[in-house]
C-alpha cells in the first residue's frame, strides 16, 4: 500500500497517511482535492468500489470529517480517504456521478449530519427520519437524553441511588479546603 500512498502524495500534494493493516490504509486530504483524488483512484488505479461513505462530527474542532472508503476488487485493498470540512454550513462535492449507490449515503449524511452535497439527487428527502424538526440527530450536540425525556416518559416509581454519593451522605463525608 506504500506505493499508492506515495503516488497520491506526488500527485495531490500534502496528505497525511497511515497504513492501518496490510490491506487498509488511510489518507487525509483537503476537501477541494478529495473528489479529484477519488475520481483518479476509480478511473486509473482500480479502486472501483465505493464501500461506504461516512461522516464523523469533530465538534471540538468545529469540523466534520467525511470518509470515503474505496475498494480495489483486484487486490482486495481498501483505501480510506478522509477530508475535514467546516462545521458551519457544511457542504461537500457529490460523488453520485461516479457511484450510483453514493446517492443513498449522501442522502443519509445530509439527513443525519446536515452536510449537503449539492447536485446529489435526493438531498433534503427524508431517508430514515420522517417529520424530523430537531437538529440533525447524529451531530454530537444533539442531546439524546433530553430528547428521550421529552418524548418518551420513563416508568413511574423508579429511583436509583448512586452508591458513591449515598455513602458520602450517610457517613458524613466532608471537605475542609473548599466550601
Amino acid at each position: 500500500m506504500k506505493e499508492i500512498l506515495k503516488e497520491i502524495e506526488e500527485r495531490f500534494g500534502p496528505i497525511w497517511e497511515r497504513v492501518q493493516r496490510p490491506k487498509l490504509a488511510q489518507v487525509g486530504i483537503e476537501p477541494a482535492k478529495a473528489v479529484p483524488l477519488l475520481t483518479w483512484l476509480k478511473e486509473h488505479r482500480g479502486y472501483v468500489t465505493l464501500v461506504h461513505l461516512s461522516a464523523v462530527d469533530w465538534i471540538e474542532q468545529g469540523e466534520f470529517q467525511l470518509t470515503w472508503l474505496l475498494g480495489n476488487p483486484e487486490t482486495e485493498e481498501r483505501l480510506m480517504i478522509c477530508s475535514r470540512i467546516d462545521r458551519e454550513n457544511p457542504a461537500a462535492e457529490t460523488v453520485s456521478g461516479l457511484w450510483p449507490q453514493a446517492v443513498t449515503y449522501e442522502q443519509e449524511i445530509n439527513e443525519m449530519f446536515g452536510v449537503s452535497f449539492p447536485g446529489s439527487p435526493r438531498q433534503g428527502v427524508p431517508f430514515i427520519l420522517e417529520g424530523w424538526k430537531d437538529i440533525p440527530p447524529m451531530r454530537r450536540d444533539f442531546d439524546t437524553v433530553a430528547f428521550v425525556e421529552k418524548h418518551i416518559p420513563g416508568r413511574e416509581g423508579r429511583k436509583h441511588i448512586d452508591t458513591r454519593t449515598y455513602i458520602g451522605e450517610k457517613f458524613g463525608e466532608k471537605g475542609y479546603l473548599h466550601d
Partner: peptide, 13 residues
Amino acid sequence: CGLCVAACPAHMH
C-alpha cells in the same frame, strides 16, 4: 463504588 469512603475514619474522597 465508594465503600472505602465509609470505612475510612476521615471519610477521604
